[in-house]
Design a protein around this nucleic acid. Structure first.
Lengths: 201, 201
DNA sequence: CATTGAATTTGACACTGTCAAGATAAAGAT
DNA sequence: ATCTTTATCTTGACAGTGTCAAATTCAATG
């Protein structure tokens, strides 16, 4: 059992070392900036050692995204789970939490919610197992708001979930992509979004 | 003056031929699926002929995006310009038009409003010259809705523009990326968005 | 100690964007 | 008409990429 630090032929835990290094590189250089060969250098291993732990580059990206979802769910259920504060406050906290997390992990967010994985049907089962519950959580949360009277019940919860999620997703993407919105106004934009999405006044 | 059809050494209008082929390839295979060498094959020219008309691959992408904006603006001012119908109907038309255009040109939309160009500061002047007016058009349109009483005036028009745009952008991206929304429900989602964004009821 | 089997490396291939140097053709000058 | 210039296109080359097959190294098991 080679303890960490010493460099043995068998790395010991190459899979998670690659995962960590890949996550770090993605967060700094972006998805397109991830080169498997440079990644191997980071970890101090040869270029094709990776293929004994991941089927190909996409499988590695899937695993990184899956880790991201686990992280995301932890953040999200934290900001939405406090039952002592009123639902409206929790909604605002959720919106803040969602957008800020995306802005703090723009590249990871891109990977998790971007086309390359979902539209091209490149998500493997492991990723789906962690991503779908995340989607369902949003639906249950917004259904809950609806039941509490925070949202009107004149439209299906699923549609309202999609619209609210779209707004959060759009805010996050406009800011992180630098399109007609900059990070100095995140909170103002979130406030405005909450005001506009809540019914009555 | 080589007429089109005959294959001469000097292509005649290689620049726009490359633009067309690139646009077509991007719309079918996506941005990452665009290879300059295959593109050259499409046009029947050698691999590096392109560099006499575009500084590099990014310049080509910029030009494709600029074309996209021109197209986008044409569509958009068409669906928003009819002064004979009431503002509320025009808003709905605008929402429909925006999302449908994005869904019909997903890859182009990605290129135009995505991070690779804007966040990485890879937009050249030609692109900015056509993109910024597009952004401003959205602002003026939504300011107009506000003045017509369609939106409340309790929040700055800029913020409301960003939120509404975020919602449209988010809807478009969720659908085109295949994340928890599919194209069969576009219109329902648009309807729901309009209902939720408009004040009162 | 021998053998099995997993982990890792090296060599190779096809592909990518990009540049320098050469080849070609059109336009302008005399 | 011929020469010169200039824009256009091609060929050769290089560094980089993901990925596979075959060879190597090591740990564990018999």
């Amino acid at each position: 059992m080679p303890s960490s630090g010493t460099q043995t032929y068998h790395h010991g835990d190459l899979r998670s070392a690659l995962l960590d290094a890949a996550t770090s590189r993605i967060e700094h250089q972006g998805i397109d900036g991830l080169s498997l060969r440079k990644l191997a250098d980071d970890v101090g291993v040869s270029r094709s050692a990776l293929y004994h732990h991941f089927r190909d580059k996409n499988a590695l990206l899937n695993a990184v995204a899956a880790n991201g979802f686990a992280n995301w769910i932890a953040m999200t259920s934290e900001s939405g789970g406090d039952e002592t504060v009123p639902a409206q406050v929790r909604m605002k906290q959720f919106v803040y939490g969602y957008v800020h997390w995306a802005v703090e992990h723009p590249q990871l967010y891109d990977l998790m919610f971007g086309r390359p994985i979902w539209k091209n049907d490149l998500a493997d089962d492991e990723l789906k197992d962690v991503a779908y519950p995340a989607f369902q959580y949003m639906l249950s949360l917004i259904t809950h708001w609806q039941q509490k009277g925070l949202l009107l019940a004149d439209k299906p919860a699923l549609r309202q979930t999609q619209v609210i999620w779209a707004t959060l997703h759009g805010l996050a993407k406009l800011v992180t992509d630098g399109v007609y919105a900059d990070s100095a106004h995140i909170d103002e934009m979130c406030d405005c979004a909450v005001l506009m999405l809540l019914p009555k006044k």
